[in-house]
C-alpha cells in the first residue's frame, strides 16, 4: 500500500492510495504512518477519498495513528466515501474526529511525496 503526503499551510495532507483498509493492511498502514515526519504543531489531514472499504481493524489503525501523533499534531479526516462514512457513524467516531467533506486542494501542482510498503 502507499500514501502520498503534501504540505498545505499548517496541515500535512496524507492521502491513502488504497481502496480497502482492512485487517490485512492495517499494520502496514500504521507502519507507513509511523515513518511520516510531522512537525509539532502541524495538523494532519488523512484523506480517505480512495478508501471504499474500511473495517474495524482499519478504523483501529487510524485511531492508533491519531494516538501516535499525539495532541500536538492533531489528526483530522477528509473525504469519506459512503461505506466509510457509515462505519464512522455506527461507531460514533464521527463525533470525536474533525471530518472534512473534501481534502484541501493543492494550490500549486507540486509533486506529492510517496511512501510505500508491503
Amino acid at each position: 500500500m502507499q500514501v502520498t503526503q503534501c504540505q498545505m499551510g499548517d496541515a500535512l495532507v496524507i492521502t491513502v492510495l488504497e481502496s480497502r483498509l482492512d485487517a490485512a493492511v492495517a499494520i502496514v498502514f500504521k507502519d507507513i504512518m509511523r515513518e511520516v515526519h510531522v512537525e509539532d504543531g502541524m495538523r494532519v489531514i488523512l484523506n480517505l477519498k480512495q478508501v471504499q472499504f474500511l473495517d474495524s481493524s482499519g478504523l483501529g489503525a487510524i485511531v492508533g495513528v491519531m494516538k501516535l501523533l499525539g495532541p500536538t499534531r492533531p489528526m483530522e479526516i477528509a473525504a469519506l466515501t459512503p461505506a466509510v462514512r457509515k462505519l464512522f457513524r455506527l461507531t460514533r467516531m464521527d463525533t470525536v474526529f474533525r471530518i472534512h467533506d473534501h481534502a484541501p486542494v493543492m494550490a500549486d501542482a507540486g509533486t506529492p511525496q510517496i511512501s510505500a510498503a508491503g
Partner: peptide, 21 residues
C-alpha cells in the same frame, strides 16, 4: 454496546458492527 468514542479505543467494534447490521 460499542466502545465510548471519547476513549478512542483501537478495538472492540467488530461484534458491535456485526450486531448492528
Amino acid at each position: 454496546t460499542a466502545p465510548d468514542p471519547a476513549t478512542f479505543a483501537e478495538g472492540g467494534y467488530g461484534w458491535f458492527l456485526v450486531r448492528s447490521l
